[in-house]
Amino acid sequence: MSRVQQAFSRGKAFIPFITAGDPSLETTERLVIEMAAAGADLIEIGIPFSDPVAEGPIIQQADERALTAGTTTDGIFDMVGRIRQVCDVPLAFMTYMNPVFTYGTERFMQKCQDAGVDAVIVPDLPFEEKDELLPVCSRYGIDLISLIAPTSHERISMIASEAQGFIYCVSSMGVTGVREEINTQVGEMVKQVKAVRDIPCAVGFGISTPEQAAQIARFCDGVIVGSAIVKIVEQYGVNCVPPVIDFVRKMRLVMDQI
């Protein structure tokens, strides 16, 4: 079983997202290790990008803070290498095409393999363009995660039939961020996936509270929480580890009760 599959083997998965280097790579390193210990099943690490078009203001600002602090892709690979010496939590990079392409796709995926990254999520790489990354990902054993959205409709079966690792279900229209209401039609999207493939479905975009997570998790195999955690990081800066861990524990508790 791959590490990504393991993430979904213990019941409903909780998947936190943080932006690497916000406010520093040392903090990110501690966060990943401590979140894993507190029960995160898979951790998404955002490689900051100057122009993150799929992100709302909270993660945009996190990317800006990280880049201003001098975070680089090389620094992030080094950090993952250090994390891997003490922690085997499944890890996925979330970034955009340009940081991967310009770094060199081959070099990027090789470093993912060397450092121990299990998957990559690239929101501006749709199904039709996945040949830009997929052959190289396959060569280095990195899962290329597919996304589906409320506007995907008939595309879902096509995407699901070739998906790897898990499917990232975008719960709402628009960008990432904290939302009051979560679209519960996501259950229908998951059903469409399962009609084609038995592959885990994790839902993200907008989920910020344990109550929302509990509500959504009934319809899927895991929930992804980004902006709500990044907001805590923004508020507490280098002292963010205890409050983030507190939040992760609450989420873990809710997931375990479903």
Binding site: D124, P126, E128, S146, A149, T151, H153, V170
Partner: peptide, 20 residues
């Protein structure tokens, strides 16, 4: 390779939400 290429350039690198 996706649609709308001019040599190696072009393509459709947008989020899935916009594909349809």
């Amino acid at each position: 390779m996706g649609k709308g290429r001019f040599g190696i350039h072009g393509g459709q690198f947008v989020p899935e939400t916009l594909m349809n």
